[in-house]
Nucleic acid binder design. Sequence first.
DNA 1: CCACGGCCTGATTC
DNA 2: AGAATCAGGCCGT
Length: 292
Amino acid sequence: MIVKTASPVLLRATLRGGQAFRWREHGDAFVGVLGDRPVLLREHPKGVEMEGAAPEATVREYLRLGDPYERDLEALAADPFLAQAITAYRGLRVLRQDPWECLVAFITSANNNVVRIEGLLDRLSLRAGDRVPSPWGTLRAFPGPEAVARLRETTLRSMGYGYRAPYLRETARRIAGGDLDLAALRTAPYPEAHAALLALPGVGPKVADCVCLFSLDKGEAFPVDVWIDRVVSEVYFGGAPLKPREVQAFARERWGARAGLAQQFLFHAARLQGIGAREGRRAPGSGEHREP
DNA sequence: CCACGGCCTGATTC
DNA sequence: AGAATCAGGCCGT
């Protein structure tokens, strides 16, 4: 079926652009699991084509199709640099993911690269997640906090988690034990949600902001990674080095409740247009396609 | 409060 | 070939 939208959705940028790490490409489509349901998504001129067992409402919520997207872009486009990024990547969306899966994904992401993050989450799901049969092969649901908490640190290390193993295990234990109610953070104010996440091991400012933005409805969250730091300092401060906290303050002041959406466009511009990229280094992803 | 080094790991670079 | 460097940070000092 076709889920209609006001304008097309850029699925590759949205699903494989660093927000989520478990979508796989099947030809021109993307296959994944939402909740415990398999789903296939494909771009369509009038919206998003979907197949599989996930309800339409689940897909709409995940892709935030009910948001005033065009209106938000219009507001952000008052910024000249963002205006060109929006022209280039219109259809790039901020996702609304499951908070637990998002939390694990970004604990995994710390000081790590995308290919390894994907591999680690794959192995974690394969080891502890339920099977999800689908027309596109047997997928896996993402394992819940209890399932992850049951894994030993040595098991996680053997899967390649390295020093993140104890962080992940302890965080899972706390969530499973009810020390922190992730779902409740959706209705909490941003500063409160951010602070609560910071208290978890393996969760620093950047990871907490990613979870806030990509799963907890905190549109004002502005995750500052090395790319964002570089692009903001280059575009808005003439290349002067900025501390993450300063970048954060600048973004909050400039974009307010739409800072997170702005962050996605800045991030894509930085990585794909090479802004702030270090000398002599190709953009990530360009080296993954080898000729035989 | 801030700066700094170390850290699992695997790919890439030198 | 084998040693550095790096990758979407966090933690402890």
